[in-house]
Design a protein around this nucleic acid. Structure first.
Lengths: 163, 163
DNA sequence: ATAATTAGTCAGCATGTCTGACGTAAAATC
DNA sequence: GATTTTACGTCAGACATGCTGACTAATTAT
């Protein structure tokens, strides 16, 4: 792991791996995140970011069960419960027992939920498209490569709650 | 998820701009963010993410005043106050009146604060370096281009209540 | 002297996260 | 059939982080 040492030494660290560049990358990641996820109540409803995120995941994985959802969201069961109950109460999400395994609850969007998800996505997409288009396909490919590397913390250094 | 309008048309949307790709990008951004910023108390102290972020900014902008810090962090004065007072109480940050303008408070890290900031960075850097190095300089350049585009949401695309 | 700027503070609220402890139902195992 | 494990639900309490509004205090600008 010590291929790169102090990041201040030019020989071991190409320009793009200097501390300054790395820190700028971190800053950029933070600010981009805020822009994309920091949106307050575009939903016109009482639903917040956590709800939106759950909605998203369910939309992309219809029939997902709670454990699967938890695995993706990486939050606790209790945290999810509140969010999920809100979504159920508002009629955005449907929950029914699996036929294969009666313990499992399969989650899917109602048509109302799908409409909401779509509306939210439509509101968000132009910004994404613009940024992606301006950067170009190659930049987007790089974006994905780097983020993938960052997201997959190799040795599972920690998951939420590991502290 | 049935009828999505524009992003499905091939002519107007190259592959990398399809909904699926865009949504994957969003997911990736979220997960990368969690890996980088979701760390709970690696600080061994009572300081959380907000503290860490302020520490970072002050480290990168020694002598910054409160207004400047607020401008970068984009939080309210009251939110910052809590964080800043914690950092001051723990002796990580120094605050002194400006000579030019006695109303301003210039913030900087104490040696203790600098040591902490450095330790935190050292702990984080290997992960960054690995991801960046594996992706390569071109990918990193793309990463930065895209994130910059995402971060700079041109102007008020949304004010609170953009339903 | 008065107004504007910069900072600090109090009080209260919303959201989202966490831990711990139980409860319930179904499946798997013995 | 009884026991254990799995998958989920829920109550209770806590912490961190953001927000608004309404002030005070010090300093500078007009």
């Amino acid at each position: 792991m010590s291929d790169v040492k102090s990041a201040a030494s030019p020989s071991a660290s190409p320009l793009y791996l200097r501390d300054e560049e790395l820190k700028e990358g971190v800053e950029l990641l933070f600010r981009a995140f805020l822009e994309i996820f920091g949106q307050r109540e575009e939903m016109g409803e009482v639903l917040g970011r956590a709800h939106r995120r759950a909605l998203y995941i369910i939309a992309r994985h219809p029939g997902i069960n709670v454990a699967g959802l938890l695995g993706i969201l990486k939050i606790t069961k209790q945290s999810l419960a509140r969010v999920l109950n809100d979504l159920l109460a508002h009629g955005y999400v449907e929950r029914r027992a699996s036929v294969r395994d009666g313990r499992m609850r399969q989650l899917s969007l109602t048509s109302k939920g799908a409409a909401l998800e779509n509306a939210l996505w439509e509101a968000q997409r132009p910004h994404l498209v613009q940024a992606f288009k301006e950067a170009g396909p190659d930049a987007v490919a790089g974006f994905r490569r780097v983020l993938s590397g960052l997201a997959e913390r190799a040795a599972g250094t920690k998951s939420p709650g590991t502290a």
